[in-house]
Amino acid sequence: MIDKIEHALLMAAGMFWQTGWSLVLGFGISALLQAIVPAEQMQRALGRGGIRQIALATVAGAASSSCSYASAAIMRTMFKKGAALVASLAFLFASTNLVIELGIILYLLLGWQFMVAEWIGGLVLIAVMSMLVKLTLPKSLVDEARHHEETGAGHQHEGATGKGETWRQRLTAPGTRVAVARNFTMEWRMLWKDLLAGFLIGGIISAFVPDSVWRALFFTDAPLAIQAPANAVIGPIVAMLTFVCSIGNVPLAAVLWAGGASFGGVLAFLYADLIVLPLLDAYRRYFGWRMAAYMGGVFFVTMAIAALVMEGAFTWLHLVPDRAVSIRERVTDFSLNYTFYLNLIAIGVALWLYTLSRKAPMTHEQHA
């Protein structure tokens, strides 16, 4: 038992270590957007929700944070500053499926097939989601969510000021640095409990759940015609209960793959990092219960459909990889690689922003 507990804690620490720098990056981008991008500029760029706006949001997401928690914070900022919901969600899907670092980790742990399927599947996700939203979204729900008063500590943020200024002028303005620091600190205060729970639960599952459980859960011995659709539904459900964000769930995806889950089931699990329970709760705080429920339903259907499409395509092309996967040593690798140096930089940036925020706390008038 002691060995398993030690293993669970080591896995949790390893998953946090692999994703820590991307969290700082994502929350930093969100804080900067809040501080320098005025609502009218965001409205002009992404307000209409057409193909051009969806494509622009997809590109922006692919260049953004790879952590679902941090990306959700950025998406919230975009939507509440006037971006169309479909464009905001396209950004969210792209930032958690099309980023380079996520593909690299998938390549190292699961092989190039999963890397390619994640990237192509990300585009499929955005296409399916866009069609579902355009067919089903009530306009009243958009207005309600955009003006929802957020609850919970750290939910107020400083927006851009100075009408007529360019974003470059706002970026170099004396107060921008302090505003970014305050917004960054507030994001951490809002989500740190969710993050901590996610990594601990992920470590516990990897240590205490044997492969035989996964083989039974994912219908390993069933024909592919039964296994594939069942796994496309089971994958997101497992993801919802494991709490781990996009890069952090790759090690668990490797555990599922080695344990017998189908190719599409593992992909559905990877796609579903956006509907883990802490994130659904964050959507509730950001937008209210109705929008959180709508997003959760649309996301679940989208992820299951995309996983089935990719399962069928890769099976037809004979590209489904072997199951020879070993991930524990890789996840708990604390060597002097690029992750080590990125985390050192991220820790320094986070401490600097936190210190700056403490030196200039937000007043009641600035909250308003």
Results as ranks from 00 to 15, higher is better:
185 T>P: 12
180 V>W: 06
221 D>F: 04
250 V>C: 06
273 D>Y: 13
279 L>T: 07
220 T>P: 00
210 P>Y: 13
157 H>D: 10
233 V>Q: 00
175 G>Q: 13
185 T>V: 13
238 V>P: 00
182 R>H: 08
215 R>C: 02
215 R>G: 09
261 A>H: 05
216 A>M: 14
154 G>M: 12
269 F>S: 01
261 A>I: 02
226 I>V: 12
163 K>C: 06
182 R>F: 01
243 F>W: 05
209 V>H: 02
153 A>Q: 08
156 Q>S: 14
245 C>I: 09
269 F>K: 04
266 V>E: 10
240 M>P: 03
149 E>D: 07
257 W>H: 14
146 R>I: 01
203 G>M: 08
158 E>C: 08
161 T>P: 15
220 T>L: 01
222 A>L: 12
178 V>Q: 07
160 A>N: 01
225 A>S: 10
246 S>L: 12
235 G>F: 01
273 D>H: 10
267 L>G: 10
263 F>R: 04
188 W>A: 05
262 S>I: 02
219 F>Y: 14
156 Q>Y: 14
180 V>I: 15
239 A>C: 13
278 P>V: 06
177 R>A: 11
231 N>W: 00
192 W>Q: 15
174 P>T: 03
220 T>A: 03
212 S>V: 12
243 F>G: 03
197 A>R: 12
265 G>T: 06
263 F>W: 05
265 G>R: 11
185 T>E: 10
207 A>C: 06
160 A>T: 05
164 G>P: 11
229 P>N: 07
258 A>R: 13
159 G>L: 06
184 F>N: 04
240 M>C: 08
166 T>L: 03
257 W>I: 05
259 G>T: 11
267 L>E: 15
241 L>E: 05
162 G>E: 09
253 A>H: 12
179 A>E: 07
155 H>W: 02
167 W>P: 05
243 F>R: 02
258 A>F: 05
148 H>A: 09
242 T>F: 00
229 P>G: 06
232 A>D: 04
196 L>M: 11
189 R>M: 11
216 A>L: 15
153 A>S: 04
212 S>H: 02
208 F>H: 15
238 V>Y: 01
150 E>K: 13
152 G>P: 08
181 A>E: 00
147 H>Y: 14
266 V>A: 08
199 F>Q: 08
262 S>W: 07
152 G>L: 10
245 C>F: 14
189 R>T: 11
223 P>E: 04
196 L>I: 04
196 L>F: 04
279 L>S: 01
249 N>Q: 12
189 R>V: 07
155 H>Y: 00
196 L>D: 03
184 F>H: 01
158 E>W: 04
263 F>I: 00
265 G>S: 09
193 K>Q: 15
250 V>Q: 01
203 G>Q: 10
230 A>M: 12
209 V>E: 01
170 R>L: 06
161 T>L: 15
165 E>R: 11
173 A>Y: 08
276 V>S: 03
279 L>N: 00
251 P>S: 14
246 S>I: 12
250 V>R: 00
185 T>C: 15
216 A>Y: 08
251 P>Q: 15
230 A>S: 09
228 A>W: 11
246 S>T: 14
189 R>C: 07
270 L>A: 06
240 M>H: 07
245 C>W: 06
247 I>W: 13
165 E>P: 03
